[in-house]
Design a protein around this nucleic acid. Structure first.
Lengths: 196, 196
DNA sequence: TATTACATGTAACGCGTTACATGATTCG
DNA sequence: CGAATCATGTAACGCGTTACATGTAATA
């Protein structure tokens, strides 16, 4: 009946709506926060996909008038939506091919501006440190006692741990790149951007 | 003159051609191997982009007749191509937004087929182990003495290290997910797929 | 007075995937 | 005799980005 193709965003939306019904705007904010840590989506795209999903019967909407604020369309996941989620969960996820613009740039170091590239590496290291701090604080605040969590909470925690591990390895890589390729211009005097 | 937009694949091709001139077919094989570890591209796409790049003057081609085999078009990077590479290297790389279908699936565990998802995690762990073994062997074979490498070799080694760190963190994550969410059905008897 | 938060969209375009298309040679 | 390697493309389509479009209410 309903054919599920790649349609990556659809599943993220279905999971999010399964957790709690929401408007397109609400989803947009969620995709800037918790879910957005491992899946980005713009509001334009979300509205477009929500429309398509409603046509397909995976979600249903109700117009909700509000005072002093624009009306909102609240979306709910349907039984068909739940079915689609369950079916999707049974298919093995294709392993995402690596796509790192940044790795290309590091490899291209001999053909580029050495200092600029290394400064970029340092900048990225800083970004990794910031996100790490944010994730760790989030983990400590939201999941203080991991043993006491139910399955749903554990699933969320597991994803957060994935983010932490990813940032850690990203940071470790940046540091290794600087060690391997950097003449460490900041170790003896002039420090331009980061890394004390 | 030449406007550089996103055009991610172009840079990967320029770096590859800077290392050594090649035909579209050669590039396709490279994108299945070394470069392909951090940037995937199909031959269809490569031929298309090569055509566009030649029009833009970033690369130039020569038809090379061969015996017993089809003719090939060998592409060389031009001075303009080198300029474009250097300019690109000066722009800070945008930090790639995380996009993990798999993380969505883990988060959606409560709404999906628990056993199927956990089997999928185990399958991915195995895939990580395989790639890790491959990368490590490659590192040991190709870069036996890291101290002795020149800059170009070090850049390649740095990228390979990135792959290794990424696989390690991916594997560690899978193992954590299984610990957190798995009832470890293979720890006491029936072992279906992997993880002894 | 200006910007942020709330709220929902359309249009154009580009990158990447999948399917389709062709044809010679070599190896099992 | 069929499959893999060598070699180069075209066409259709989908997902995602960027720019454009509109309007109210609260806050600084």
């Amino acid at each position: 009946m309903h054919i599920l193709l790649g349609m990556a965003l659809e599943h993220a939306i279905l999971v999010s709506l399964a957790e709690r019904s929401a408007s397109g705007y609400d989803l947009t904010r969620r995709f800037d926060k918790s879910i957005g840590h491992f899946w980005k989506a713009s509001h334009q795209q979300i509205y477009k996909v929500l429309g398509r999903m409603e046509t397909a019967g995976l979600v249903a909407s109700t117009a909700v008038p509000q005072e002093g604020r624009p009306d909102k369309k609240v979306y709910v996941i349907t039984d068909e939506g739940y079915d689609a989620l369950r079916e999707w969960s049974r298919e093995p996820s294709p392993i995402e091919p690596a796509r790192s613009d940044f790795a290309v740039k590091v490899r291209g170091l001999p053909y580029g501006d050495r200092d600029a590239i290394l400064a970029d590496v340092a900048r990225r290291a800083e970004a990794h440190r910031e996100r790490l701090a944010y994730y760790r604080a989030d983990a400590a605040r939201t999941f203080p006692d991991v043993e006491a969590l139910d399955e749903g909470q554990r699933a969320k925690y597991a994803v957060l741990r994935g983010g932490i591990l990813l940032e850690e390895s990203g940071l470790a890589w940046c540091e290794e790149v600087l060690e391997l390729l950097g003449a460490t211009p900041w170790s003896d005097g002039d420090a331009g951007s980061a890394a004390p």
